[in-house]
Amino acid sequence: MGGVPTPRCIIVRHGQTEWSKSGQYTGLTDLPLTEYGVGQMKRTGQSIFRNKFIDPTHITYIFSSPRKRARQTVDLVLETLPQEQKDRIRIVIDEDLREWEYGDYEGLLTSQIVELRKSRGLDKERPWNIWRDGCEGGESTEEFGLRLSRAIARIQNLHKQHQKEGIASDIMVFAHGHALRYFAALWFKLGVEKECDGKQPQPPTYKDDTVPYVPLKTYRHLVDNPNFLLDAGGIGVLSYAHHNIDEPALALAGAFVPPPEEESQHGDVI
């Protein structure tokens, strides 16, 4: 690979808000970070760049949810970088990365949602599972999976372009708890695959001419809990096995990575 590291997708959950602290479901409600959340993400930015867990010169794009808590987190994480470095990073606001639209469950705790559904005569045969059952008055898991599949396709397409050009490419994604756990599960091709049936947004959910729009023939959605955890302010690293964009994988070491010449992902090793 000529010393160029395998592309990575670095997912970052926004810092603490009042509702992430209390456990209330926060979809479209546009809350800012708490004072603790602000300090939390400032410290995160200082740590990942000072300790070279992430080389800022390798960041090609940042994709962010449009919600205030995500965009505020982007600014805080990048705060310590010199302005000329920040200017080289393209920041794309993408509606496809917004949190699950919880509908009737917005602002509620899980226990309250369970009681609400019980009062409506639901879940008599099995407990509510958001990953399978979605949200009344909000999004189904199919709708959520479709838009996250679109976002993944764009990012992986950019990674493929950058790899062909020999460009080191870390793409960062700033979003939310359910969205990023779901995103990671789809990255590994979990869940079930379905045809898109022409369900493409018009116009696209972002505005940046340098990001090609990737039409989908199929998409994936979950039918059960992927059993991933990502606390407020948490970071995860997604990448590819054998330097191959067609082999998406979890980077178990996270941000702790060896130099490119020491990577063990040889193309002829399974």
Rank of each mutant, 00 (worst) to 15 (best):
Q85N: 12
Q83V: 08
G37I: 05
N129S: 14
I54P: 00
I62F: 13
I48G: 04
P32W: 10
D94I: 00
K124Q: 15
T60D: 10
R90H: 15
P32E: 05
I89H: 13
W131F: 12
K52N: 14
R126T: 12
D123C: 12
V92K: 08
T73R: 03
R120L: 13
D96M: 01
L109P: 03
Q40T: 02
E106Q: 02
K42D: 11
L146A: 04
G134H: 05
T60V: 08
I130C: 08
E136Y: 15
L108M: 13
E35G: 10
Q85T: 13
E35W: 11
S149F: 00
E143G: 05
I130T: 13
R43H: 14
D55A: 11
S140F: 03
R43Y: 08
E99I: 03
I91T: 14
E106M: 04
R154W: 01
L78W: 04
E99G: 02
I130F: 14
D94K: 01
G145F: 00
V114H: 10
F144L: 05
P66T: 03
L78M: 15
G103I: 01
G145L: 00
N129M: 14
R69D: 06
G37M: 07
T141L: 10
Q40V: 00
V74G: 11
R88M: 13
I59D: 07
P127H: 15
I93M: 07
R71H: 09
E101V: 14
Q85W: 11
E125Y: 12
R150T: 00
E143L: 08
E136R: 14
I130Y: 13
P82E: 08
D104G: 02
R147Q: 00
E95P: 03
D87E: 14
R154Y: 01
V92M: 02
F49C: 08
Y102F: 15
R98C: 10
Q46N: 11
E106C: 03
S119L: 05
V92D: 11
E139A: 03
S64N: 03
D104Q: 09
D55H: 08
N51Q: 13
R154F: 00
R71A: 07
S140E: 02
P32Y: 07
R98A: 13
E115Y: 10
E99C: 04
E101H: 13
D133V: 06
A153H: 00
A153I: 00
S140Q: 03
S64K: 03
D123L: 03
P127K: 15
S111R: 15
V77T: 06
R132I: 10
D133N: 10
T57W: 11
K42G: 10
S149R: 00
A70N: 06
D94F: 01
N51S: 14
V38S: 07
T73L: 04
E35K: 15
E35Y: 11
R67G: 10
D123I: 04
S111M: 09
